[in-house]
Design a protein around this nucleic acid. Structure first.
Lengths: 248, 248
DNA sequence: TATAGTTGTCTATATCAATAGACAAATTTA
DNA sequence: TAAATTTGTCTATTGATATAGACAACTATA
């Protein structure tokens, strides 16, 4: 709400430069800076946060490294990257259609797949016996070549044998399910949480350590309520916001 | 998914002990430990994360300070606190009814209120002129005496003059709106994001520095679609998860 | 062309974070 | 009771984090 303001805490296990970098990222994501706009000078930021100029420089260096900012000696420091993508969540959520108008190209890349026995949680969600075989897909959602989400998805192995091939070929869950005779489906429930990104998230989403991910756990069902898919998706909180609409 | 596993990153501005503390909190919130269950011994944790025992001890010390763990010399370290509250988000979300069954007592405390000119964003959300007077309420949602959420809410000052008094008296948005002739309302839209808690969040939600908050920005409307309220709410990601149901 | 404003680099110092090892203190188990 | 297990305390060392100050290099502007 207040842009670059909001204060900084000491001795909490998070370094000052990391906290300041987070605040700047937040401000950019909130749209407080236009693209190519100049950041306030280092001395001004140092004063605002009550830290040394070198500490601010560490924060800026990290963001330059990340490709978010560009510093020019004598001129100033400039914002390169854009606002957050707004990702809709609702009963009819689809990865590719959701981002229409915000990006031009999007697809889902299959990173790996395996078959494993269902844990209790997954068995419950899919309505199958605990320990029954499930197919696990590790995927990454990409828009305009940039990673947007990282998901782990489980399907009943009996009903959806070979879905990993369909995913690899089509790059789309919706298209893959069509091959199994499912022409429409709904998102039954979603549980939302947030945490620090782990090593896998960092690599897959091209994040800097310390980044935050939004986590959704969802169940998709056929129109008559039969569960078909359980998924845990991770989104970069810096790059994505989730939007819930009433009419969806 | 994998409980206490998930690895740890170095040189990223977030100290190892803070990262380990976060992982333990996550595992507890996920229900990987029963209440009063023993944490693995310090040496085992140190080995699992590839760090020195003293680093694990720092993480545990922080969580003991927070009241999440209790260490007993010679016996072990034990989990005190419970799973996350599951907070429903949907068209008919209400603070007090949402947590039914999970808590016994809940209300909203009014921290402060003020009148200010509407920013562009708030004017748009409420469908009033930019700069028109709006009432701003700073509130804290509490359940069983523990802080759950911290919210900032804006109302059209013309239509809802004196609503701060109603809030202070009733401790409920729903009850306050009734005094203005609004017997029912819907949540029109919600935008969800996450960030590190700022100083205000830390104080209001009784969090440790470095904690993550889930942020929702929502617009409530009357049944015929007239906007009445714009709100930004912050929830502790450690203590709360947000649940989206299809039939809501 | 000065001058002011800005980022870049260097040196120095103090504190925090992390590692390492040793042993004490308390509890549980054989 | 003795041994094993576990948390608590202490000392020492290293590297990362943060502060402080000075000055160089570059840009825009009066």
């Amino acid at each position: 709400m207040t842009g670059l303001a909001a204060s900084i805490e000491r001795r909490n296990g998070v370094s000052l430069w990391r906290q300041i970098a987070d605040r700047i990222l937040q401000a950019i994501a909130n749209g407080d800076f236009a693209e190519n706009a100049a950041l306030p000078p280092e001395m001004a930021l140092a004063e605002r946060y009550g830290v040394n100029r070198h500490t601010v420089r560490s924060a800026i260096a990290a963001l330059v490294q990340e490709g978010v900012l560009k510093a020019e000696q004598g001129r100033g420091t400039f914002v390169l990257s854009r606002k957050r993508l707004s990702y809709p969540i609702g009963a009819r959520t689809r990865f590719s259609t959701g981002l229409q108008g915000q990006t031009t190209e999007r697809h889902i890349a299959l990173l790996s797949s395996s078959t494993e026995p269902a844990s209790r949680r997954i068995a419950e969600a899919l309505g199958i016996a605990r320990g029954a075989a499930v197919i696990r897909l590790e995927t990454r959602g990409e828009a305009d070549g940039h990673p947007v989400s990282r998901a782990t998805t489980w399907f009943d192995a009996k009903r959806f044998a070979g879905i990993e091939t369909a995913m690899a070929e089509t790059g789309s869950i919706t298209a893959s399910l069509k091959r199994f005779g499912i022409n429409d489906y709904l998102r039954q429930s979603t549980v939302l949480s947030a945490r620090h990104a782990d090593a896998d998230d960092l690599a897959a989403l091209d994040l800097q350590p310390g980044a935050i991910v939004l986590v959704t756990m969802s169940v998709n069902v056929t129109l008559d309520g039969q569960p078909i898919q359980f998924a845990e998706s991770r989104f970069s909180a810096e790059r994505v916001e989730l939007r819930l609409s009433a009419n969806d």
